[in-house]
Computed example of a mutant assay.
Amino acid sequence: MTVWDRPEPPPRPVPLDRERIVAAAVALADEGGLEAVTVRKVAARLNAGPMRLYGYLSTKEELFDLMLDEVQAEILPREPPRDWREALRVLAHRTRQAALRHEWLADLLGGRPALGPNGLAVTEATLAALDGLADVDTVMRAAETVSAYSIGAIRREIAHLRAERATGLSERDWQRDRGPHVTSMLATGRFPALSRAVHDGTDVDAGTSFATGLDWVLDAVAARLTLPAE
């Protein structure tokens, strides 16, 4: 039985329900990451005893499930685009935006399927955008491919943001600090492809990089959807 299937216990003198518990946990995670979220800390923020929370959830993993589902509500657009490509693009960009607001989301994306109502709604919106354009297996692989790109790119971006905070160096400052080492290594001639990328490549921001890569993935999906049946 999942956490969503179990009824909540009756209220007591200190008002408590899953909605309040999840809101407190999300606030803690926004402030300090998932490592800042414990049942004891959530209970303290709600002025309740820790044991009371176990009437609403059994484990910290269930709390993470509830938190993930809460934030996934931010991913669903109010008006789903009719075109499949735009629908998948919007979902991917909204997932990235949610992760930038709640960096801990990157740590929970890509695990086991999200079974909460909002998580299921995101999955439904993704599959519905492709429904009828190909056989169900092709649709599933297409959805998985877009998801794999989005999650990987989002995690990479969040990792860079965390590194900046940990070192106190922006990406550009870090590159400038490591510049002499990189220059000396490239001068050996052992890395010609990397040298061309460093000297001739265009530096773009994370949002542009994400959008470009996503368009390329959607191009590949479009090619598979239009292949004639064998």
Rank of each mutant, 00 (worst) to 15 (best):
80 P>G: 07
117 P>Y: 06
113 P>F: 10
106 A>V: 00
121 A>C: 09
22 V>T: 15
145 T>H: 13
229 A>W: 08
108 L>A: 00
131 D>S: 11
52 R>A: 15
65 D>G: 05
183 T>K: 14
157 E>F: 03
165 R>Y: 10
211 A>V: 04
124 E>I: 02
43 A>T: 02
174 W>Q: 12
155 R>T: 05
144 E>C: 10
117 P>C: 05
12 R>E: 06
57 L>P: 01
123 T>Q: 15
117 P>S: 14
151 I>R: 13
203 D>P: 05
31 E>H: 03
138 T>Q: 13
144 E>W: 11
33 G>L: 13
8 E>I: 06
94 R>W: 00
98 A>R: 03
120 L>Q: 15
2 T>D: 12
58 S>K: 06
215 D>W: 08
177 D>C: 03
22 V>R: 04
8 E>P: 06
46 L>M: 04
54 Y>C: 01
174 W>A: 15
180 P>C: 01
150 S>C: 09
189 G>K: 07
4 W>I: 02
83 D>I: 08
182 V>P: 00
146 V>G: 09
38 T>I: 01
10 P>S: 15
42 V>R: 02
177 D>K: 09
199 H>A: 14
212 T>N: 10
210 F>A: 02
53 L>N: 11
153 A>D: 06
89 R>V: 08
59 T>K: 07
156 R>M: 14
127 L>I: 06
221 V>Y: 07
161 L>R: 15
138 T>V: 15
86 E>Q: 13
228 P>F: 00
72 Q>K: 14
40 R>L: 06
116 G>T: 09
153 A>L: 09
125 A>M: 12
170 S>V: 05
56 Y>N: 07
28 L>F: 09
153 A>M: 12
92 A>Y: 05
168 G>M: 05
106 A>N: 01
159 A>C: 04
125 A>P: 07
15 P>V: 07
196 R>I: 04
52 R>N: 09
22 V>Q: 04
177 D>Y: 08
173 D>N: 06
118 N>P: 06
133 L>V: 00
102 H>C: 00
151 I>L: 12
200 D>T: 10
125 A>L: 13
196 R>W: 02
62 E>N: 05
27 A>K: 11
160 H>W: 14
119 G>Q: 00
155 R>A: 15
108 L>D: 01
182 V>N: 02
102 H>V: 02
152 G>K: 01
176 R>N: 09
217 V>Y: 07
97 Q>P: 06
147 S>L: 08
63 L>K: 08
220 A>G: 14
61 E>G: 11
112 R>Y: 01
215 D>Y: 03
105 L>I: 11
116 G>M: 05
126 T>S: 10
175 Q>T: 08
159 A>Y: 05
93 H>G: 03
200 D>P: 03
205 D>K: 04
62 E>T: 09
31 E>T: 05
95 T>A: 07
71 V>K: 13
55 G>D: 04
111 G>V: 04
202 T>A: 13
133 L>R: 12
81 P>D: 03
209 S>I: 05
169 L>R: 13
61 E>K: 01
50 P>N: 04
113 P>T: 00
84 W>E: 07
130 L>T: 07
25 A>Y: 10
146 V>K: 13
64 F>N: 06
70 E>S: 14
193 A>R: 11
118 N>Y: 11
66 L>W: 00
170 S>E: 02
17 D>Q: 02
